[in-house]
């Protein structure tokens, strides 16, 4: 009977999921907070040299690697996400207003989503190769001298540029898809009405499309920011496990990358946990701000 409480039965149905979640989500969450306050935690057996207070946190905040990682991550977050959102927005609106080849374009634009970030990252690395890469070749047609993008001794700015291009490339597909389905949901009547009022295209875009799509834009932006804070695999794809150009490991390291490198170091469990928690807090604070802002900006 629907209305009857079926406690025992419900918990039986939930049991498989809850047991797994307890072991692999709830306990780890609790444990990560715990060990972030302990000294020299060996992850393999969780042995420790005792309580450390907030030492792990203060050490992390003073650590140069962490500062690098935070800078790299922030640049990726604050450059690649807004750019890819804007580009994706233009692409999807453009795509929506053409009649021919819509399906073909849509398929092409989605390809990066079904591509392995490591595999395509390697392809990008070779595109940016100084001597044999495609980009320098093409720029050579316009008389630009070869640039050392990501090779040994490449500057941070160039390596970052290459990484950003790759990040934007990889981030477009999902956003275009979501925006397209959002545009699908906008009542055609609005456009018909605007046409009858002979509103120019630009005004239709700013006065109808953007406001009506704003919940979707806010959603995509927030989730993309959260995702971008966790950037790791794209960097490994392009730069390898060292996360840097050759001779300069960790040049491109990200916060998550740093967590994994500490997981790999013996006795650094507490450090890894404290970085992960700092990242969580940053993401949380940032998401909160974002939601506040979009609450004001998002129409209806």
């Amino acid at each position: 009977m629907l209305e009857r409480q079926s406690n025992l039965k419900a918990w039986l149905y939930l049991a498989p999921a809850l047991i797994l979640l307890s072991i692999f989500i709830f306990y780890p969450l609790f444990n990560a907070f715990l060990i972030s306050f302990f000294k020299d935690v060996v992850i393999e057996d969780m042995s420790t040299d005792g309580f450390a207070g907030i030492d792990n946190y203060s050490e992390v905040l003073r650590n140069g690697n962490f500062k690098n990682a935070l800078v790299n991550t922030s640049v990726i977050v604050f450059v690649s996400v807004p750019l890819s959102v804007v580009i994706a927005l233009f692409i999807s609106v453009g795509l929506k207003s053409i009649k021919k080849l819509q399906g073909v374009f849509q398929t092409i634009f989605f390809l990066p989503y079904v591509t392995n970030a490591i595999a395509i990252g390697m392809a990008f690395a070779f595109i940016f190769h100084r001597d044999y890469g495609l980009l320098n070749t093409m720029m050579g047609w316009f008389g630009v001298d070869p640039i050392n993008w990501i090779g040994a001794g490449a500057t941070w700015g160039r390596a970052m540029t290459a990484l950003l291009i790759f990040s934007i490339w990889g981030g477009l597909a999902f956003k275009i898809l979501v925006f397209l389905s959002g545009l699908q949901g906008i009542d055609k009547q609005y456009y018909d009405a605007a046409k009858i009022d002979s509103a120019p295209r630009g005004r239709i875009f700013t006065k109808i499309t953007i406001p009506l799509l704003s919940p979707m834009i806010a959603y995509v932006t927030i989730t993309s920011f959260i995702g971008a804070f966790k950037v790791y695999t794209t960097v490994v794809g392009m730069f390898g496990a060292s996360m840097g150009t050759s001779g300069n490991p960790r040049q491109m390291i990200t916060v998550v990358g740093l967590v994994y490198s500490y997981i790999g170091d013996i006795g650094e469990g507490g450090t890894a946990a404290s970085i992960a928690i700092i990242l969580f807090l940053i993401t949380l604070a940032f998401t909160g701000i974002q939601m506040q802002v979009s609450k004001k900006r998002v129409h209806y």
Binding site: P28, A276, F280
Partner: peptide, 13 residues
């Protein structure tokens, strides 16, 4: 909402 890295540390253990 929680980044997966937080779980990974303990799950690895």
């Amino acid at each position: 909402m929680i980044p997966g890295e937080i779980f990974v540390i303990t799950n690895y253990s």
